[in-house]
Amino acid sequence: MRDKKRYVLAKITPAWACPETKSLYLVVQEAITSLWGDVIAAGIQMAVVYGDREFCIIRCRRGCEDRLATALSTVSCLNEQGISLRSYAVSGTIHALKRRIEKCRKGPVPAAKELVIGERTFEAYYFPGQKVDVLEKGFKSRELLFLTETDIEEM
């Protein structure tokens, strides 16, 4: 039997994390199962149907969208990288959510610029609204800072 579906639009933070759709699926499935258990997880029928760098669209059975949204807010980590998935909107069609993405998007994800603070080198991502994500260059224990342009000027 074919069930009615609902689609949840979620924003991926940080935007430079670039998770793959399959990784997203696995992390959301784990969050749903650990929060609601196997029986309800089976009923939710979750699937990641669209994903880009900033947004993803997740499908579920109609009536389960609140449970899915709550489970999304318990996602905190993806491949040992801190991440958050914030549900933005719910719709009955993917098309409507894609139009919503175009409205919400504040331009392309910026490229990394090199930033030197003291003796350390960082990759800085400058976002609209004065936001700057700063990620230390290196291989191990890279420090991640969330700052504003004013903070960087004062450093």
Binding site: T13, A69, T70, S73, G82, R86, S87
Partner: peptide, 16 residues
């Protein structure tokens, strides 16, 4: 961290 902040709507869901 910014990543751990929750929106009002998320807080409603988690508090439920």
């Amino acid at each position: 961290s910014v990543l751990e902040l929750k929106s009002v709507r998320e807080m409603v869901g988690l508090a439920s």
